[in-house]
């Protein structure tokens, strides 16, 4: 640093001794690129050690066989991936990765399919309800501010409390939806729920889907609302002059123009839904609903380090696949 002090002609404001002014002058004389990277250093250092290194390291771990002592076994190449993806590893895992058959129990009981079912169903309902909420918030009415607060609040609830809330709501005898023995509620006699829904895989998955819709629809609504508000108002005036009905206006103007925002919102929700873990752990436990993230942790706890890393990386791969599908669709929407 001291060597730079010779460059007196730099843009330095005041001259004077001391290391502080030396550093300042050194900074003034950096090129724009140098200055940019200097300011980025702390952020990149943190992301490098706490995000990039773990990712690469997880990939490395996934290339080694499991060892019973909890350490790493021999180098195995892609054998872990082959074993997990073909279902050969199912017997060793706390829950199967792939379903062994196409029965309802097998589909809800294995990590990949239960995660996909959860993601598709919850994102589908969140999109529809979120669109409805966005249309409501897009109106001008008295108390709009408070309606918006009410809609956002579930989004701000900590995951563990969201889990506790639904754990209590579906607690037999306590919760509104599940009665005690001999006194079943209408949801049990007519339909989906058994006497102990929190211990039943299919029921618990349904409850977790409802919990997720309750909490995260607000996020969807806010993104769609931003899309709605960016629509040029004059288009609506034109439509009114042309005598279009409300439905026609929605179909021809609102919907196509808001679609890119809806896709972005769906993309974000899909990414987040694929990593579902906390609600499951709180509501029903990972043995009842074994999502992909659950399986990573539970196989790690069973000293299957290599397999655990493999599943973590496959999860990331599936998310990357979903992201590229959405980006492809989004690009097509933007072009056409």
């Amino acid at each position: 640093m001291a060597t730079e002090q010779s460059q007196r002609t730099g843009g330095g404001p005041r001259t004077g001794g001391g290391t502080l002014s030396g550093v300042t002058r050194w900074m003034e004389n950096l090129s724009e690129t140098g200055f940019a990277y200097l300011l980025l250093t702390p952020a990149l250092l943190l992301l490098g050690t706490i995000a990039l290194w773990p990712l690469l390291s997880t990939f490395r771990l996934s290339l080694f066989a499991d060892s019973l002592t909890g350490g790493l076994g021999n180098f195995a190449g892609i054998q872990n991936y082959v074993a997990v993806l073909t279902g050969q590893r199912n017997a060793l895992l706390p829950a199967p990765f792939l379903p062994s058959s196409l029965t309802v129990d097998a589909l809800f009981g294995s990590a990949l399919t239960v995660t996909l079912i959860f993601t598709v169903v919850s994102v589908f309902f969140e999109t529809i309800i979120g669109f409805g909420q966005a249309l409501v918030l897009n109106q001008d009415f008295r108390g709009r501010r408070w309606v918006r607060v009410a809609i956002i609040i579930p989004w701000a609830v900590p995951i563990v409390i969201q889990g506790m809330l639904f754990y209590l709501l579906f607690q037999p005898g306590i919760g509104l939806f599940i009665g005690r023995e001999g006194n079943p509620t209408i949801l049990q006699t007519l339909g989906p729920f058994s006497a102990t829904p929190l211990a039943n895989t299919v029921d618990a998955t349904l409850i977790i889907i409802v919990a997720d819709i309750w909490k995260t629809t607000a996020f969807m609504a806010l993104l769609i609302l931003a899309g709605l508000q960016s629509i040029d108002r004059t288009l609506y005036d034109v439509a009114r002059v042309a005598g279009a009905s409300k439905w026609q206006t929605f179909k021809r103007i609102t919907f196509p123009l808001v679609l890119p925002s809806v896709l972005v919102a769906m993309l974000f929700r899909t990414i987040q839904a694929m990593r579902i873990y906390g609600v499951i752990e709180t509501v029903a436990g990972c043995t009842t609903v074994p999502s992909l993230s659950c399986l990573v942790i539970s196989s790690f706890n069973n000293t299957l380090v290599g397999t655990s890393a493999t599943i973590a990386f496959i999860t990331a791969g599936i998310i990357a696949l979903v992201v590229s599908v959405y980006i492809f669709k989004y690009a097509r929407e933007e072009m056409g």
Binding site: P54, I271, L292, A309, A312, T315, A316
Partner: peptide, 11 residues
């Protein structure tokens, strides 16, 4: 984009 589970083991 990566799920927290992909960072967990090394950390």
């Amino acid at each position: 984009y990566f799920p927290p589970a992909a960072f967990f083991l090394p950390l």
